[in-house]
Simulated assay, not measured.
Amino acid sequence: MTAGFPHHSRPGYYPPALSEELSTYVATMAAALVPGGAGYPSGREAQVGRFVAERASGQDAEVLAAVAQRWPAGSDAEATASLVAMERDDPTAFAYLRELVYHGYYSSRRVLAAMIDRGYAYHGAPQPLGYPQSEELLVPSARRGSYTETTEVSRVDG
């Protein structure tokens, strides 16, 4: 567990759960789902498989194993065919895998560098570091609501 910020989105929060085969499966599916181009890395080059492996829970491993069994990815061509069929025939599994891949992809330093090279002012996860902020934006311009101490609250019988 990462000291100072124990959160399931951080690497090492869960004990290693993905086998080498599942990590490779995720990397192959990530390359098919995000092929890269125009200066952006592919899902494999962005190391999505590693990202997911470092953060996957035991439950994630079980779900991914079931997905991998039903939708094989022994090659890039097979991964592409499986993704097309999965999106059509099993949208829940497709959405699950897509979410893992996209989260890993847009958390990759390589992808963030490509975005910054193109002028995007994005800093990646975890938020609130994602977009530039100023003190002016962080402080409300008008006071709204109120605060009552717990000891000052009394029961209202109606």
Rank of each mutant, 00 (worst) to 15 (best):
L22I: 09
E135G: 11
A17K: 13
A38L: 08
A125I: 08
Y40P: 02
H103V: 09
L100W: 15
A46D: 12
G145I: 04
M86W: 01
V52N: 03
P126F: 10
G12R: 02
R110K: 15
A85G: 00
S141D: 05
S141T: 11
A73E: 09
S146N: 02
E99S: 14
G145P: 03
G12M: 05
P72V: 05
L22R: 09
A66E: 06
Y14D: 15
L22E: 05
G130N: 10
S42M: 09
D89M: 00
P15E: 14
S154D: 05
A56T: 05
S42P: 09
Y102K: 10
P126N: 07
S75Y: 13
F51N: 08
M86Q: 05
L100N: 09
V156W: 10
Y13W: 13
P126D: 11
A38C: 04
M1F: 08
S154N: 07
E62F: 01
V26S: 08
A73L: 04
L138D: 13
A114E: 13
R143A: 14
T92Q: 13
L83T: 02
E136S: 13
R10Q: 14
E78L: 03
S19I: 04
E135W: 12
G39L: 05
A65K: 10
P15K: 14
A27D: 15
Y131V: 11
A73I: 03
E135I: 07
Y131W: 14
E136K: 14
A56L: 07
Y102P: 00
A113V: 08
R98F: 07
E149T: 01
D90I: 00
G158Q: 00
Y13M: 06
R144G: 04
V34E: 12
M115G: 10
V48N: 01
L64R: 01
R88P: 00
A121L: 11
G49A: 10
V63I: 15
S42H: 05
S57F: 07
R110H: 15
R70L: 00
S107K: 10
E45I: 03
S19E: 07
E21L: 09
F5C: 03
Q133S: 15
A142Y: 12
D60K: 01
G124M: 04
A17P: 12
E20K: 13
Y147S: 10
R98I: 00
M86A: 07
V139M: 06
E62G: 15
G43Y: 04
S9W: 12
A31P: 01
L129K: 13
A125N: 14
R10M: 11
P128V: 03
P128C: 02
R88G: 00
P91C: 02
E62S: 11
H7C: 04
G145R: 06
S82M: 07
V139D: 11
H103K: 11
V153A: 11
A81Y: 01
Y105W: 12
A61I: 02
G36L: 04
A113L: 13
A77R: 13
L18A: 01
T80I: 00
A93P: 04
E135S: 08
L18D: 06
V63Q: 08
G49F: 01
Y122T: 12
T150L: 14
A27G: 13
P11K: 06
L64T: 02
A17T: 11
A31S: 12
A95P: 00
